[in-house]
């Protein structure tokens, strides 16, 4: 575990070595705010909750998380540092987990910085803070799933742009799986079970449950399982792609 902490510290500090971290956080906060107020009619709705705030998180993550995750392994491969890194006395799992946790913490930090939303809604009314806490937990878990996907896919290539585009595509499938467009596409002809399966794969379905304050064990397990599966794949991909 000591190694995971050491890798985590190096990676996390790496985000702040360049202005990228600050740009990311500012854009994240600006988009989160404007989605809530302009697209979500936060004020006009007149409800003391953060439903409209959380509603746009999947789309926000879809856009921004690939930009965070693309460098995780693609950069190591591009710089050749992967050879140095993986000949240190660490296991591949420690390497993958350390990097993942750094990216997750970084996104978590950006998410935490949306706390003025929470203050605002508490000033304007009397929201159910339990529901809001559930929303934050759900959002963080969903962010973890996006990052795990991005980390795994960034190990396929030396090129960060390719990693970014592929990650957006795969994340889009996971996000939009539950949208009415995709569900409508299968609903007409496919059996009920298939429709359910498509829906149950989607981040939206699980996240919306949690963000409404319903913390169902199945939703939590869904995100945790997804993270573990993608990180396990990440370990394999790093190992297999070392040669080229």
């Amino acid at each position: 575990m000591g190694n995971v902490a050491t890798i985590f510290r190096r990676e996390f500090a790496g985000y702040f070595a360049t202005p990228v971290a600050f740009i990311f956080i500012i854009i994240f906060l600006a988009l989160a705010g404007s989605f809530t107020f302009y697209l979500g009619y936060f004020i006009e709705r007149g409800n003391a909750d953060l439903q409209t705030f959380f509603l746009f998180h999947p789309w926000l993550y879809l856009l921004l998380i690939p930009a965070v995750s693309m460098r995780l392994w693609a950069e190591e491969r591009k710089q050749g540092t992967i050879e140095l890194f993986l000949t240190l006395p660490i296991s591949l799992t420690e390497a993958v987990v350390g990097k993942f946790l750094a990216a997750w913490t970084f996104v978590g930090l950006a998410l935490a910085l949306t706390f003025p939303m929470w203050i605002t809604v508490n000033v304007l009314g009397e929201p159910d803070n339990g529901v809001i806490a559930a929303g934050y937990i759900g959002s963080l878990m969903m962010a973890g799933a996006y990052i795990a996907i991005g980390s795994c896919l960034s190990a396929f290539t030396k090129n960060q742009v390719i990693a970014f585009v592929i990650t957006i595509t795969v994340c889009f499938l996971f996000t939009a799986g539950g949208s009415s467009a995709v569900v409508g596409l299968v609903q007409g002809w496919a059996p009920e079970a298939v429709v359910k399966a498509v829906q149950s794969l989607s981040f939206m379905t699980h996240f919306q449950n949690i963000s409404k304050g319903v913390i169902d064990l199945r939703d939590a397990i869904y995100f945790i399982a997804l993270i573990i599966a993608w990180l396990a794949a990440n370990v394999l991909v790093v190992d297999l792609k070392k040669a080229d």
């Binding site: 190096r10 500090a13 050749g80 540092t81 140095l84 240190l88």
Partner: peptide
């Protein structure tokens, strides 16, 4: 790997780190 010191081809390093930060990282991993 504990018994090994390795300088890979082209001496790849993390460009954003300082030599001090980099060596402290390696020392911690070691």
């Amino acid at each position: 790997k504990r018994h090994l010191g390795y300088l890979p081809e082209g001496a790849p390093l993390y460009p954003d780190m300082s030599p001090r930060g980099f060596l402290l990282f390696i020392a911690a991993i070691r």
